[in-house]
Amino acid sequence: MTLTTRKAALGGLTALAVSALTLVGCSAAPTGNGGSTDAKSSFLPCMVSDDGGFDDHSFNQLGLQGLESSAKSLGIKEKHVQSNSADDYTPNINSLLSANCNLIVTVGFNLSQATDAAAKANPDVKFAIVDDGLDNEGAKDKDGKPTGDGKVDVDNGKPILFDTVQAAFLGGYAAASYSKTGVVGTFGGLQIPPVTIFMDGFAEGVKYFNQQKGKDVKVVGWNVDTQTGVFTGGFAAGVEAKTAAQGLLDQNADVLMPVGGPIYQSAAEAIKDQNKGSVLIGVDADVFNTDKTVDDIILTSVQKGVDAGVEAVVKAAKNGDFDNTPYVGTLKNGGVKLAPFHNFESKVDPGLAGELKKIEAGIEDGSIKATSKSSPQQ
């Protein structure tokens, strides 16, 4: 799928959400995997991926793991369908409504409008969405960027959110500590809150390192103050992502943090082509464990516990404890964290682990501020 096609699909999402939901259940069921409806079970949890797919080694894969784990522990079936483009979002939700799903979890900010519309049209079905607050999704600021009022606008919809600025702060500090060139970089897929919150934290962590150490490590690819930076226009690996990564490497960055599902794969290609010892910081999952093709260049990963969040929401819904209060993952509750250094354990500064532990405690008690304009309200 080309970048132009992807943008066109995203632009038509609102219209699709409204028109298709007037004919809920009438669209053909898309290709997908998972359990079928079990007549013996009174509860069927279901999931729709975004167009990154369930094999993205990132948040979609983690979401599915959470769904499958919760279903297994509860002794029930689950059903999931994969989206191959933004055009699939509403039809996929409709197919799960037709399958009599009791809870439909959608994975990713890009499904916000389709999820909100479906929840409003089907008040007897429970919905949850990863990385969106369900807070007035239709609103936009003067620049056309989505905004919300901070209040969940559907009783049957539950946001699954993560204050990843906290863990990304640790990642930025680690990147600055490891860098040999004094330049580190980050870039994103789309300029949306679940992406920029990582980039904010990364830059803030570098800034804190500079303050503590009297250094001047530079961040390229993102400016916290102006909220401007480098974006590929989507979450697919490919030419755009590799070009973005190469642009940062050309500015002498030797640590890169790509934020946007599989785009890290293209960044890894650029790093390996350059062959100058640059490294990656993964996001969402511990990429060292999920993708062995790049584990030799993974410094660490800024983890977002999508699997744990999904599992908690599924179990609560099954047990009758569902409400629309957002689930927010933090350092304190284990919902976000920095992964181990794995192969780089002996290559980082010997005092880094202790410094990160102190910083984490400071973020948790509020003495160190790790904040982002995109942080979820708690």
Rank of each mutant, 00 (worst) to 15 (best):
N223D: 15
T330P: 01
A203F: 03
V217Q: 00
K213Q: 14
V259S: 04
G34S: 08
A118P: 07
N122Y: 14
L10C: 06
G335M: 01
D116R: 04
G320T: 07
A176I: 05
T196F: 01
K79H: 10
Q212L: 02
D55N: 14
A99D: 13
D295L: 02
K140N: 12
A9Y: 12
G148E: 04
N60V: 04
S83P: 08
Q113I: 15
L111Y: 01
G12M: 09
T293M: 07
S179P: 08
Q61W: 02
D131I: 13
G201S: 05
F202Q: 01
Q265S: 14
F54K: 07
E355L: 00
G35A: 12
S69W: 10
V287I: 12
P30Y: 05
M257E: 04
S301E: 00
A316R: 04
K145R: 15
S177N: 12
A8S: 13
F109G: 07
V294W: 02
E240S: 10
G53V: 10
G233Q: 06
T5C: 04
P340I: 00
V336W: 01
T90N: 06
A86S: 14
Y173F: 12
L190E: 12
F235Q: 09
T90A: 14
N343Y: 06
K242Y: 11
A270P: 06
D254S: 07
G25Y: 11
T228R: 09
D56Y: 03
V230Y: 01
E78G: 07
T181I: 07
S19M: 10
A317L: 08
K180R: 13
T14Q: 12
D307W: 06
T22V: 08
V105Y: 06
Q246E: 15
G188E: 08
D296C: 11
T115E: 08
K140W: 04
S98W: 03
P340E: 01
T2E: 11
A174Y: 00
S177W: 01
G214H: 09
S19V: 12
M257A: 07
V154E: 13
L103G: 07
G205S: 00
N92P: 08
K145Q: 13
Y89C: 09
G305V: 01
P193C: 07
P159H: 07
S177E: 08
D38T: 09
T186F: 05
E364M: 08
K373C: 04
L190R: 11
Q212C: 00
P262E: 09
N319Q: 13
D132R: 09
A118Y: 13
L280D: 10
K272H: 11
G63W: 04
P194C: 06
L13E: 15
T5I: 12
G282L: 06
T293P: 07
V287S: 05
G260F: 06
G214E: 09
D38P: 06
A317C: 09
L21F: 12
K72F: 14
M1W: 11
F198S: 04
S177G: 10
G233V: 03
G234L: 03
L44V: 08
D155G: 10
D124R: 10
A99W: 03
P45A: 08
N223K: 11
P91I: 14
N210F: 08
T186S: 09
